[in-house]
Each structure stands twice: as C-alpha cells, then as structure tokens.
Amino acid sequence: MQIKSVTFTSRPDLSAANKFSTAGNAQQGNVHQCKSQEEKSQKKLVLGCGALVYELVELIKHNPLVNQVVDLHCLPATLHNTPQLIAGEVDKFLSEKGADYAEVLVAYGDCGTAGALDTVLAKHQATRLPGAHCYEFFAGSQQYDDFMEAELGSFFLTDFLVKFFDRLVIEGLGLDRYPELKDVYFKHYTQLIYIAQTNDADLQEKAKQCAQKLGLEYRYRFVGLDGLRPVTKPIMQPSAFSNIESAFSNIEVNYV
C-alpha cells in the first residue's frame, strides 16, 4: 500500500530531529500541487503534529478508502516544546495550502496555545481534535480528568514521547546540559503515566527507564487510537481501528 501524499515539514532553524521520512513511502518536498476543482472537492488535508506521525501514517496507510482522499502533512514534533509557535506555523501552512482542500482537520489539541490555534482554524474554516492536548484526546477527557484528580503531579508520555524521550524531554528541557535542573522541573511531579497507543513491550520497558531517569513512579495505561477517530471520520468504519493498532509493529518511521 502506498501513501499518496505524506510530507513532513522541516525548518532550517531546527535540528535534524524535526525531519522525518517514512520508509518506502516518504515524499519529501512540496507534493501539494494545485488541485483541480474536481480533485479539490474530494480531498481532505490532515495537518498533524509531528508527535502523532506514526499514528497518522498508520491510520492512512492501512485504509485504502482514507488513503485515496486524505493528504497528510506533519509539522515539527519539537513544536511540542514551543507551543507559542504552533498557531503561527499552522496559519502559515494553511495560508499556502489550505485552499486546495475541501476539508482541513488539524491533528492538534489546543496544545498550550490558549485559544490562538482556534482563532487560526476559524480563519481557515478548519477543525481540530477535541481537548486540551494529545494526552487528553488519547486518554479521553474522563480518563484524563480521573488521572489528574487522583494525582495532580502526573507527567504523561505517549508512544512518540517514549521513543524520542531523550531528544524531546531530556534535551528539550536542557537536562542533558544541566542535569541539576531536574528537580526544578519535576519537584512537584510524583508519577509518570505512559498512555500507550500500542501494546509494545519494548516501549513499556523504555518508558519505565524514562520514569527512573526522572525519579518518578511508573504507571502504564493502554489507550489505543480512539482519540484520532476524527481523522478518518466519516471515511472509515470504527472496526478498522483494531487492525491498525495490531499493525503498528511494522511501521518504520525514522529521524533522518
């Protein structure tokens, strides 16, 4: 199965950590050519956070119906650490490409933009995933609230954040350069909750090590991909999700 159109943005002022490729499927550069009116009327753009790239690629790759009508583009995952830049980056991309599509779904939550992202989305008549951030839309609002009610000092990791923990958390917070800052950042946290998109023993082991590095108690909860249903709605049947989750072990998405 080939993905028709998957691109990943990289910015010259950011590190190689922001550049992605999908093995065998990547098409770097501008693949969003001006669409004919007929094609435009059928196309949906999913503009995603780079930290969701594995899940978004799989959702599209393993569903022919989705693959035919969805173009995927991901912004750099490091925006996770600079939420003040997210709305501007989304605006910039949609200003250039958004008009080519009949529908635009932005695979972000509010993500610390304090409504700035919603203002941009209203301008482009686009929608986003519900919730404040990926932890909430992956776990579901009720379960996320339950986590926080039980323990306010909860630090969350998703599959992506476990995989790239050293780059996005350790280096992102400067703990590689200043390990003494760990207590400044984490003194009020007590537990790390790995909300898993896949059932992967290796990732669970790595997540445990992440918790140890931060001196936090480790907890695990499988939450799957339900939070991303709006990406495929109304294209895909809900039953297809189980196939996608089981297919994750084969995905090869690497930093380049």
């Binding site: 917070l173 400067g174 703990l175 350069r177 200043y178 003494e180 800052l181 400044v184």
Partner: peptide, 11 residues
C-alpha cells in the same frame, strides 16, 4: 535565551 538557560541564570 531559552528556559533552561534562564533557570541557570535564576539559580
């Protein structure tokens, strides 16, 4: 400057 550096300054 970024947050880690500011925290070092604050220290």
């Amino acid at each position: 400057l970024f947050v880690p550096e500011v925290l070092k300054c604050a220290g």
